[in-house]
Design a protein around this nucleic acid. Structure first.
Length: 939
RNA sequence: GCCCCGGUAGCCCAAUGGCAGAGGCAGCGGUCUCAAACACCGUCCAGUGUGGGUUCGAAUCCCACCCGGGGCACCA
């Protein structure tokens, strides 16, 4: 990978476009772009304002998911997305747009902290070094960023505003009637006026401390003592979204335990409906929308109350199938359900206690193993089915989860597979309440599984409710819900899988909370003018970590140790008092929840963004348009976490009047992964892919045969390639072109180093068609281009525009290669074609294009030259060749004038010799003429 | 198990329901070279995962299945 595609010493092509020349050209133009501020983008307002330069141009805000500045630098996935957005941004500039395009760094987080723990070096230092390194790598790729707008989430000038937004969220509540966030003082005013009742008591008689507690019940950011994901191996709690399906931490892969702890939460659940509903406003793929809908998990059904025999209490359940209530033959509580203690009879107490102990000790991962048999025990209690009046047994079982619905279910074994299995195992009653449509009959003892489809109801009537005869679930549900509501047994309900967002972490390298506690333990937000709360300096970066399996350990934040910092005297309005600082830090997601907004106005000290700049770059583009970034490109791995959190913050900012856009990211495009061959030895361990040799149709590593597979390029599969190595060998323009020509941007594709030479040859031919390889002078052809050449040119112009408008870089590149191949066959490029060619190449290979543009005699950059427009007269041919099919098989070809009508085409087809032979005297039943396409004769 | 995405030449990939091929790689033949590499010129290569259906006509639309990738999952 280190050899360069250079001319050998004896080569006479002194001016051939080689890897070495490419790098010289690239360095020259990168320096010039930086010196001239070529890609600085004007704002309508504020410190970057230049209203004249903004002009009447339409705007486009093109955004990449910003990278974590890893010590390893960029990996190949980064330039894949980044060059795609760069090509698009450059194209948009050449089509008259004011383009905002820049790059920042998501620089808080675990890796820098862990590196600091290992080396003793402060994470701020390594972070700065890594950012400097990545900036130079980005520069080498020729990305047309506005360098003035670059930010890092770790910069106090940035996280000041992250803390400020947290403060806004803390000082806001969600009004369920208006379905939006409002300021907390408006809630206080409603309480004072008596127009809204408090949740925890009578506001008018509450103590000051109780009133603070009441407000905490409403705040969008609040401290809660609730089950959280405690990860002893990391020494911190983590969010639901950071726990993998098998109950381990996303980072580090340590076991995670559910524990009650006092932690900061964000009330994202209040926004569940809007987060689902507003997906309809977005230009995202259905796949990503489905993932978000899935994660939020809105489920419509009913709450139903069951009386308990001999108790003055009711068991409340959530069900999506209230229409099957007549079939509820038992109930199941989660083992942790608070009613278990109340309901369990003396003779079942030992069994229940033993079962609860066993369930408690199980990790989530064990409880989620779906293949294992159902378990459970009877409590001895009986509930009353409100529809049938039947006495039904109450069990506990760990297939019912405390964290969903009410932690209790009504079991309808005939209509729910889990309940069916449970009933079969423990011999509980199964009654059919529908006549299954598959002919299995209504004797459930013969059934193999539950029946869940639409079917007429049977056995489903009491004195005041009759479902029998109804044939659809939808109607059955509606009728039952009306009855439940009328009888006071329940009501329609919507539940969500989405939980509130656990927002605090017991780490060092993150944003400190802008929160202090008074002597009574009440939380107070630090006034905006006192921000930022700087992350204090220390050389003890590590939280206390524990045995990964020690579920009962307790978090200890690194900031707890800094007693001088924790105790602080502030005047929050009641005179100077001693406060205790919050010692948590925010999760890494915080900084990425709003970074796109800071790009708009990065140096603003008065606001996180000037409203005029937000409205210009991200405001709604018309009625019904949600506003937001015009194009957001990044990996699908952020489908839930980042995108959900950022949407939530944006909506809060919208509700509070800080932004005009309803959504942050209008169009989202997910790039694919770069895959590469990876090799495993006989133990199944990955071996260094670059050291594997191909031999006799097999693959060998250190003399031993290895297996080839494909996987995402990266460290873990030992198949990573450094993009900078490619730049060193061929130059950045070749790398850019190769990455985007491999396939559509959203497809994952295997890297094949041997294929890179294809696009490299293309650039070499473009160069050779314009520049003499011996002398370095321009060698375009003086002759006017033929009509045929003009047709190729204008078809290419039209096609490249169309492909780029739709982000199809691979086919756009193919069209340019086609044009260039045509020119190569001519023996060179006619002078009048050179400029449109160079302009069209510019978005893809900007350095090469700048160099050619300059050599063609232009002093200014090509970056703002108008992209060619196709002349329609060259897009149509004078004649068209039609294939003529007889019964769907091509039997002949005719050439007719392009403007011939269908009758003329048909006549010409029927007159063709080969067609006449194929028809063989029969009279065609039908002749289909597809204008411009083909003729089909049906016999 | 459920939900997405994909399956076209040896490989990566194109193809508004209309002649299966735009582009690249590899292969093969040639030019250049003492020879090679680079470069250049030319050229071979399939019936679109499988089985049905709709249609004058299907890679494309519909149904079922197979394979690969991703997400969710005892969510009531």
């Amino acid at each position: 990978m280190s050899e360069q595609h250079d001319t050998s010493p004896g080569d006479t092509h002194a001016h051939r476009y080689t890897g070495v020349l490419a790098q010289e050209i690239e360095a020259t133009w990168q320096a010039r772009w930086a010196a001239e501020g070529t890609f600085e983008t004007p704002n309508p307002a504020g410190s970057l304002a230049d209203p004249d330069a903004v002009g009447g141009r339409p705007k486009q805000f093109i955004l990449d998911m910003f990278p974590y500045p890893s010590g390893a630098g960029l990996h190949m996935g980064h330039p894949l997305g980044f060059t795609a957005t760069d090509m698009y941004a450059r194209y948009l500039r050449m089509t008259g747009h004011n383009v905002l395009y820049t790059m920042g760094f998501d620089a808080f987080g675990l890796p820098a902290e862990q590196y600091a723990v290992q080396t003793g070096q402060h994470p701020a230092i390594t972070t700065d070094q890594n950012i400097a390194n990545i900036r130079s790598q980005l520069k080498r790729l020729g990305l047309s960023h506005d360098p003035r707008r670059s930010i890092s989430t770790t910069d106090p000038g940035y996280y000041r505003w992250t803390q400020w937004i947290f403060r806004e969220i803390f000082n806001a509540w969600f009004d369920p009637q208006q379905q939006r966030a409002r300021r907390i003082d408006e809630l206080v005013a409603e309480f004072d006026a008596g127009t809204r009742s408090a949740k925890t008591g009578d506001w008018s008689t509450m103590s000051a401390a109780d009133r603070l507690r009441e407000l905490d019940e409403w705040r969008l950011a609040y401290v809660s003592d609730a089950p959280v994901n405690w990860c002893p191996g990391l020494g911190t709690v983590v969010a639901n979204e950071e726990v993998t399906a098998d109950g381990r931490s996303d980072r580090g892969n340590f076991p995670v335990f559910k524990r009650n702890m006092r932690q900061w939460m964000m009330r994202i659940t209040a926004y569940a409906d809007r987060l689902i509903d507003d997906l309809d406003l977005l230009d995202w793929t259905d796949a990503i929308k489905a993932m978000q809908r899935n994660w939020i998990g809105r489920s419509e059904g009913a709450t139903v109350h069951f009386d308990v025999s001999g108790h003055d209490t009711r068991i409340t359940v959530f069900t999506t199938r209230p229409d099957t209530l007549f079939g509820a033959t038992f109930m199941v509580l989660a083992p942790e359900h608070p009613l278990v203690d109340v309901l369990t009879t003396a003779d079942h107490a030992d069994d229940v206690a033993a079962y609860r102990r066993a369930a408690e000790s199980k990790k989530d991962i064990d409880r989620q193993d779906e293949t294992r048999e159902k378990t459970g025990v009877f409590t001895g209690a009986f509930a009353i089915n409100p529809l049938s009046g039947a006495r039904i047994p109450v069990w506990i079982a760990d297939y019912v989860l405390m964290g969903y619905g009410y932690g209790a279910i009504m079991a309808v074994p005939c209509g729910d597979q889990r309940d069916f299995e449970f009933a079969r195992k423990f011999g509980l009653e199964i009654v059919a309440i529908q006549e299954p449509t598959d002919g299995r009959g209504t004797d459930c003892s013969t059934w193999d599984d539950a029946f869940t489809g639409d079917a007429p109801y049977v056995n489903s009537a009491n004195e005041s409710l009759d479902l029998n005869g109804i044939a659809t679930k939808a109607e059955g549900v509606a009728v039952t819900n009306r009855w439940l509501e009328a009888q006071g047994h329940g009501h329609t309900t919507i539940t969500y899988k989405l939980r509130d967002w656990l927002f605090s972490r017991q780490r060092y390298w993150g944003e400190p909370f802008p929160i202090v506690y008074d002597a009574d333990g009440n939380a107070h937000a630090i006034p905006a003018e006192m921000l930022p709360v700087l992350l204090p300096d220390t050389d003890q970066f590590s939280p206390r970590t524990f045995d990964p399996d020690d579920a009962m350990s307790n978090p200890e934040s690194p900031l707890d140790r800094l007693t001088d910092w924790v105790e602080v005297t502030l005047d929050l309005g009641d005179g100077p008092q001693v406060y205790r600082r919050d010692t948590n830090v925010m999760p890494q997601w915080a900084g990425s929840c709003w970074y796109e907004l800071r790009y708009l106005d990065p140096a603003n000290d008065d606001a996180f963004v000037d409203p005029a700049n937000e409205a210009y770059w991200m405001g709604p583009q018309g009625p019904g348009h949600p506003g937001g970034v015009d194009l957001y490109v990044g990996g699908v791995e952020h489908a839930v976490l980042h995108l959900l959190y950022a949407r939530f913050w944006h909506k809060v900012l919208f509700d509070l009047g800080h932004v005009s856009s309803v959504e942050p990211f209008h169009k989202l495009f997910n790039q694919g992964y770069i895959l590469a061959a990876a090799y495993t030895d006989e133990r199944g361990m990955y071996v260094e892919a670059s050291d594997v040799e191909q031999r006799d149709g097999g693959y060998v590593y250190e003399g031993r045969p290895v297996n080839r597979e494909y996987g995402k390029m990266g460290k873990s599969l030992k198949n990573a390639l450094d993009p900078m190595d490619l730049c060193n060998e061929y130059g950045a323009d070749t790398l850019r072109l190769y990455l985007e020509s491999m396939g559509p941007l959203d497809a994952s594709r295997p890297w094949e180093s041997k294929d890179v030479v294809g696009v490299y040859r293309f650039l070499q031919r473009v160069w050779r068609n314009i520049v003499d390889e011996e002398t370095g002078t321009i060698r375009t052809l003086a002759d006017e281009p033929s009509v045929e050449t003009l047709r190729v040119l204008h078809r290419t112009v039209a096609a490249v525009r169309d492909e780029l408008d739709n982000l199809r870089f691979n086919t756009a590149i193919a069209k340019l290669i086609e044009l260039n191949n045509h020119l190569t066959k001519l023996g060179g490029c006619p002078a009048s074609i050179a400029e449109p060619l160079v302009i069209m190449v510019a978005p893809f290979a900007p350095h090469l294009a700048e160099e050619l543009w300059s050599r063609l005699g232009h002093a200014a950059t090509v970056a703002y030259e108008a992209f060619p427009v196709a002349d329609p007269q060259y897009l149509v041919d004078e004649t068209v060749e039609y294939p003529v099919q007889v019964n769907g098989k091509v039997r002949g070809r005719i050439t007719v004038a392009a403007d011939a009508d269908n009758a003329a085409v048909e006549a010409a087809a029927l007159a063709d010799e080969k067609v006449i032979a194929a028809i063989d005297g029969t009279t065609p039943k039908k002749v289909i003429v597809v204008p411009g396409r083909m003729v089909n004769i049906v016999l």
